[in-house]
């Protein structure tokens, strides 16, 4: 793609509204640290951020202001935590409570809550998938010390990959999940990174054909690859 072509696409790129091929071309190009494009993206962010004023004006409650601001002041620290904890799944909450022991970790904790909230949403999707009648569940892994977990797969709803003891990744790498059909090329089913404990819940709504024989996980560059570029470190047969 040439620069004049890309110049027209930066807004859509930052909105994540480009189709895969176009987005990947820009991703790949940005990895070369092109100053022209970084500038183009910064300008695009100005435009897209300004579009937010098109949302119908709504008035938040006064209480929200109080809650938001008190959540960063030391004397009132506990309250938003209780709110956040209440909203999280039991497993996530246990992690939060554990970390509250250490006041020095408060800062990291706040960032984790955002992450956990995302994971909570993912778990909701996973639960939705679990209730579908065509969902298959396959466990993988031999021991607690090596990668293990389970794959939930539905030909109508998508795939949920729950992994533990996953290997740590370089900063510029992510895992890519693949659906392996009986015939033909592996189909990409999304990118993910494990948390610091080596755990990950990855949801893909790519519908898995009935002929999907296995799922596989490879390590790929951050932007992902259209076809695996490394040997899978994990293959889970579904049969």
């Amino acid at each position: 793609m040439s620069h004049p072509e890309m110049d027209e696409l930066y807004e859509l790129y930052v909105l994540n509204a480009l189709d895969r091929d176009d987005a990947f071309q820009i991703d790949a190009h940005l990895e070369d640290d092109c100053a022209h494009c970084q500038e183009g993206i910064r300008a695009a962010l100005q435009t897209t951020a300004a579009l937010s004023v098109l949302a119908d004006p709504a008035e938040p409650t006064k209480d929200l202001r109080r809650r938001t601001l008190s959540s960063i002041k030391p004397p009132a620290r506990s309250r938003p935590w209780l709110v956040a904890i209440a909203g999280l799944s039991a497993a996530c909450a246990a992690l939060v409570v554990f970390s509250l022991w250490s006041a020095t970790r408060m800062q990291q904790m706040r960032d984790q809550v955002s992450v956990l909230r995302g994971e909570r949403n993912e778990l909701r999707s996973a639960i939705e998938l679990l209730t579908r009648s065509d969902t298959r569940t396959v466990q993988f892994g031999q021991t607690e010390e090596t990668p293990h977990g389970r794959v939930l797969i539905s030909s109508t709803g998508g795939v949920v990959f729950v992994g533990m003891q996953l290997p740590a990744l370089d900063r510029d790498k992510r895992f890519e999940l693949w659906l392996i059909p009986a015939k033909g090329a592996p189909e990409p089913a999304g990118m993910f990174r494990p948390n610091t404990s080596g755990e990950s819940v990855h949801i893909s709504s790519v519908p898995a054909e009935r002929s999907t024989m296995a799922v596989a996980v490879t390590i790929e560059p951050w932007a992902g690859s259209p076809a695996p570029t490394t040997k899978p470190f994990l293959v889970v047969p579904l049969g």
Partner: peptide, 10 residues
């Protein structure tokens, strides 16, 4: 959340 990692969302 479920679909966000689909095609092109990079």
């Amino acid at each position: 959340s479920a679909q966000a990692r689909l095609a092109g969302r990079s």
